[in-house]
Design a protein around this nucleic acid. Structure first.
Length: 757
DNA sequence: GGCCGGGGCATTTTT
DNA sequence: TGCCCCGGCC
């Protein structure tokens, strides 16, 4: 471990070693933030702190997974697993399930995704006979989400004069009532939406001081990643769990706070030192990613923001080239220019396609680049769009799973009660909803005993409902006695879902079948990986709990395939590319039209541009068009004000691209000292070697297996056995996989073959 | 229940 | 311009 510490720079090391009280680590772009977090945790573990006492919160599953696997390499797999490390949402849902008896929910509550909540709101607005032009479901949803993130319950909302007055003022006086109904409906349905996972955790701690104390005592060390993205609820929960002397370490970069629109509060990080007056401040200011010019250009840009924590980010890489600014006549030409540059650079500089990314402000911009790339046969991939779990066929199956776990789940029930078609129409569903609402019970209660609630339906409909009910009962029974895999299989078979899909021979139909197969195989993988961990019972609920909080942002399969990447700047956060094109740098597009009223929003847009610039390792191109097709008509455009915010000495501005000033020659004509391999890479290798797990009973060989053999695992691919431990039932192999880090496999369950070198 | 056409609308997105 | 949603019609 001492050796590890040598691998850190001074400020990183200081941040890692300070654990005596609250600390704020300002981590500039590319400054080795994740490494500080992982080393810090590894250091704690090394010093005898139990993983059980460490709470590490991240925003995405991907971040949590990466950190976990790095820690597994430095400590060991089992310890890493016992850490409380994960997203806010997943860890809090774990706590809420555990403490269910104090929450008013059952431990098997299901989770509404954004679409479900919107559908429910839409239904409520309709039931209340409100005008959905005034009460637009999407904006009501955003509003409710916002107040929840401010920890405002329906009761508090009603009592809040200002909120009520504001709603009257905007002619939407029914919002409080909609919110109340929504909350109650979720409660009777036994479901939580994403915001509820935070809100109810806060309320749990708030209303039960002894529970709060228990967790506060348990989590003696708390780490929060991407603190600039926390919303008020997250901030407050962290406060509930800490004292002013607590060892809490928050890591983030105020300059990269770009999610205020979904509730993130940059004040959390800016005012951290007011919240914890005793806290220490560490700054990671060396950027290991980008050339000096890129870093300096980005600095000069972000300097124009008022609200920020002072810092001096620097790079010791080569100076690099000045940043070309390219002006195109039209959006179409912008596409051709970028595509042409990529082709050219690939030839001249021997880059691969995957070294390029095109970053834009809005998804709508992607189409033109798509067409331009396709025209000259450049392979590309667009990030974003419909995620795997949002596809209809997947949501249908998941809805059935949700019903087997929680038959009162309203949105799941509405989704599949007539799919595949069973002749149960809207009228019937509406009657069920109305009956359930008047009796204040879940939909399933009504469905299970229609007579008791005087459900007004004819005998034909009653029969149809009966047969649906039987299906769900049967599936629920399977879910009770068998594992998640069997349940999944039964769902596909018994409901006739797959049959329905097989009939469709169109390409879309085939891809739907493939998606279902993929879901089934992920179910399989889930069950078998839990088995390998030695867990015997794996219920459908366990699977749901995991995937409800998952997105396929997380599945970065094909990450090494060779294609150009296109994405919004927002989704590029945290990533890096050798060459970056930032396109559409025009007023009203970037900064977006909507951000213009408010200087704070402009600052956020500027941070967004900062994020874009700092994705690049070697080269950045900035492009804008003079004319652009927007909303059906061609508009002439003005170059973005942000171009003027970058110190001109770092830009290369040709005459035709002049914006605001007269063109000048670039100040650096790039003496090309090729970037040396970063210290970073060698470090990582070192880190990997030094950390074989300390396990109890070690063997040189078990059966045909020997330490040092290479194997190929069904899911994790190739890897080397680094240790063999345990006896018989508990025999395990520790395998260092080429692409998945170190894993312990329970030999009884693990599926792999021995391969030759 | 599915298909077609009109109207409205048009940042950013993870959990 | 293009997409999505809704409502009407078969």
């Amino acid at each position: 471990m001492e050796a590890f510490l040598q691998q850190l720079n001074e400020s990183q090391r200081e941040a890692v070693l300070y654990n005596e009280g609250p600390s704020l680590v300002i981590a500039g772009a590319g400054s080795g933030k994740t490494r500080v977090l992982t080393y810090k945790i590894a250091w704690m573990l090394q010093n005898g702190i139990s993983p059980y006492n460490i709470l590490a919160l991240t925003f995405t599953n991907k971040a949590a997974r990466e950190m976990k696997s790095r820690i597994a390499r430095m400590a060991d797999e089992d310890t890493a697993r016992r850490l409380w490390m994960g997203t806010f949402h997943s860890l809090f849902s774990r706590i809420l399930r555990r403490e269910a008896e104090h929450t008013g929910f059952r431990s098997d509550f299901t989770i509404y995704d954004a679409q479900d909540s919107k559908n429910l709101l839409k239904a409520i607005i309709k039931e209340k006979q409100l005008d959905d032009k005034v009460y637009k479901p999407a904006s009501i949803q955003a509003h409710i989400s916002k107040v929840k993130n401010e920890l405002i319950t329906p009761e508090r909302y009603l009592a809040d004069k200002e909120l009520i007055e504001y709603d009257n003022f905007t002619h939407k006086p029914a919002i409080a009532d909609i919110y109340m109904t929504y909350r109650n409906r979720c409660k009777t349905a036994g479901v939580m939406d994403f915001d509820d996972l935070l809100l109810y955790t806060y309320l749990l701690f708030d209303e039960n001081p002894e529970i709060k104390a228990r967790y506060r005592n348990q989590f003696r060390f708390i780490l929060v990643d991407e603190y600039q993205d926390t919303n008020s609820a997250q901030h407050e929960i962290v406060r509930q769990l800490t004292t002013e002397q607590h060892s809490i370490c928050v890591v983030g970069d105020d300059a990269q706070s770009i999610y205020s629109f979904r509730g993130a509060n940059i004040g959390n990080i800016l005012d951290f030192r007011k919240t914890y007056p005793e806290s220490k401040l560490f700054k990671l200011e060396q950027n290991y990613r980008s050339t000096q010019i890129i870093v300096k250009a980005a600095n000069s840009l972000i300097d124009k923001n008022k609200e920020q924590i002072p810092k001096h980010i620097y790079s010791r890489k080569s100076p690099g080239d000045a940043i070309p600014v390219i002006c195109a006549y039209s959006d179409l030409e912008e596409g051709y220019i970028v595509a042409g540059r990529i082709a050219e650079m690939r030839m001249i500089r021997h880059c691969e396609y995957k070294d390029f990314v095109i970053l834009y402000r809005t998804n709508a911009q992607s189409r033109i680049f798509e067409e331009a790339l396709r025209k000259i046969n450049i392979p590309y991939r667009i990030y974003g769009g419909l995620s795997f779990y949002q596809r209809k066929e997947i949501k249908d199956i998941i809805a059935y799973m949700r019903l087997t776990v929680n038959p009162n789940d309203e949105e799941a029930l509405k989704r599949v009660i007539n799919y595949p078609a069973r002749g149960i129409g809207d009228t019937t569903v509406n009657k069920i909803v109305a009956t359930a609402t008047t009796h204040n019970v879940g939909l399933w209660e009504v469905l299970a005993d229609p007579l008791k609630y005087n459900l007004n339906i004819n005998s034909g409909t009653a029969k149809k409902l009966e047969s649906f009910r039987k299906i769900i009962y049967r599936l629920a029974e399977i879910a009770l006695t068998q594992d998640a895999c069997e349940t999944g299989r039964a769902i596909v078979k018994e409901t006739g879902l797959l049959g329905e899909l097989y009939e469709d021979r169109t390409p879309e139909g085939l891809s739907r079948v493939q998606n279902v197969e993929e879901l089934m195989s992920s179910l399989n993988a889930f069950v078998s990986s839990r088995r390998e961990e030695g867990i015997r019972e794996i219920s459908t609920g366990d699977f749901l709990a995991e995937i409800s909080l998952l997105t396929d942002q997380d599945t970065d399969k094909n990450a090494h395939a060779d294609w150009v990447t296109m994405m919004t700047i927002h989704s590029a956060k945290g990533l890096e590319f050798k060459n970056v094109f930032i396109v559409g740098l025009e007023e009203q597009l970037f900064p977006s039209e909507r951000s213009m009223q408010n200087p704070r929003n402009i600052e956020e847009e500027r941070r967004l541009f900062y994020v874009a610039l700092t994705r690049a390792e070697e080269t950045v191109f900035l492009t804008y068009a003079r004319n652009r097709f927007r909303n059906g008509q061609s508009q002439s455009c003005v170059p973005s004000r942000f171009l003027k915010d970058i110190d001109r000495q770092y830009l290369h501005i040709p005459a035709d691209a002049a914006f605001g000033h007269s063109p000048v020659q670039p100040s650096f004509s790039a003496p090309h000292s090729q970037t040396k391999p970063e210290r970073y890479t060698s470090l990582r290798k070192l880190a990997r070697e030094e950390n074989e797990p300390d396990v109890t009973v070690q063997h040189q060989s078990i059966g045909p297996l020997q330490v040092g053999y290479r194997i190929r695992h069904e899911r994790f691919g190739a890897g080397k056995i680094t240790a063999l431990t345990g006896e018989n039932e508990n025999a395990k192999a520790v395998v260092l996989f080429d692409n998945f880090g170190s894993k312990q496999l329970l030999l009884k369950f693990a599926r792999f073959e021995i391969i030759k070198e």
